[in-house]
Amino acid sequence: MASEVKAGDLLEGRYRILDTLGAGGMGTVYLAEHNLIKRRVAIKILHPELAIDANVVERFMNEARAAGTLGHPNIVESTDMGFTHEHVPYIVFEHLEGTLLTDEIYRVGGFSVRRSLWIAQQIASALHAAHNAGVIHRDLKSDNVFLTDRDEMLDHVKVLDFGISRFSQLSESDHKMVMGTPEYLAPEAITRPEAIDGRADIYALGVILYEMLAARRPFPSQDGDPKALLHRIVHDTPEPLNVPELPPALHDILFGKLLAKDPDERFPTMIEVESALDKFVTEKPTPMRRNRPQKTIDPFSVRPGTRTPVPVPVAARRRSWMPYGIAIGGVVIGLIGLIIGLTREPPATPCDCGDPKANVRSSH
């Protein structure tokens, strides 16, 4: 097995490893410095044991291609890529300082309508650029949105982790998989994963907007049962929002045009999402400096002393802020029986038989 990179190592004569920022299921992220120009960067190196899996390497390269070619101010920038001396691929990203959107939402207990709209518009702009380039993110979530400062402006968005993005046609194996993070999955991503398009990202943006306003997700994972969660996403209606300042028309857009079960009822494109949200923006946020800590935090520890009025969901506690997502981040669920079961209405009485499809149908 290939050895791990360590502080002091020099990658291809260009990047000096300074420190480890964190690790996840797909790779390890390091703080590094260009050996000549002394610019600090974040380097994501695929786990050596995964470098022999062609499908994993392809998804890793997807992230580099998306971040390196889209060229949008709200998408994390990839500036280089290469291979370690043991032929393990790595991606070089801009080094960001700030916080994950997830952490900020639950730190302050939800955002104002104005702040939520400002962030949602930037996400929509980033995904509009991606969709125009034929890229569907497929794992858009608050854990893959980073808030930083730019030109004195608070909450400049960077969309992260295009690791499972789709550039063209799905592979044969992908046709059989539900890919993404369950709480943000569009219903059709569960029932018809082969048919998803950019409207699945529009649904996920609706989940993020709901989450920013309510400090909870439309369908939170309550008991760790993915079958029950996916069943609720397909069949149930999200809890109404209790946000007095939310304009009724914006409420209707959120529930009727972003979180609609039927993709045909959603906005067809992200540019239309941007335009619809812009009608509710009376002014841009006032330029100001972020007044929260921006130091590196152990990504696998509970952060003592953090003001958290609302409990952070389990998924959000997995890591603190990073330059971008470390792992594929999503859950890949290859259960064809589960998908079939979710397309049917549950029976009136639960079935306690051993058929997994029946169990899914009765999980509601």
Rank of each mutant, 00 (worst) to 15 (best):
S3F: 07
V5E: 08
K6G: 06
A7C: 13
A7L: 07
L11M: 12
Y15K: 12
Y15H: 13
D19M: 10
T20K: 15
G27A: 15
A32S: 14
E33F: 10
H34N: 15
L36A: 14
R39Q: 14
I43V: 12
H47K: 15
P48T: 08
I52E: 15
E58Y: 11
N62I: 03
A64C: 07
A66D: 05
H72D: 01
H72S: 04
S78W: 01
D80H: 14
D80Y: 14
M81F: 12
M81H: 14
F83G: 09
P89H: 10
Y90S: 11
Y90V: 05
Y90W: 10
V92H: 10
H95Y: 14
T99K: 14
L100V: 03
E104S: 09
Y106H: 15
V113W: 07
W118M: 07
I119Q: 12
H131Q: 11
G134Y: 07
H137V: 03
H137P: 11
R138A: 01
F146R: 09
F146N: 05
T148R: 10
T148G: 06
M153F: 08
L154F: 02
H156L: 02
K158T: 01
L160M: 07
F162A: 03
S168H: 11
Q169P: 00
L170R: 10
S171V: 02
K176Y: 03
M177Y: 03
M179I: 12
Y184T: 02
T191G: 04
G198D: 04
D201Q: 08
I208W: 04
I208T: 11
Y210R: 12
M212E: 06
A214G: 15
S221K: 02
D225R: 05
L246H: 12
P248K: 03
D252P: 00
P268N: 11
T269F: 02
V281H: 12
E283P: 00
K284C: 04
M288R: 15
R292F: 09
Q294F: 06
Q294V: 09
D298Y: 08
S301P: 00
P309G: 10
P311D: 08
V314C: 00
R317D: 02
S320V: 04
W321L: 02
M322A: 07
V331C: 00
V331K: 02
V331W: 04
I336V: 13
I336N: 15
L342P: 01
R344C: 01
P350T: 09
A358F: 07
V360L: 08
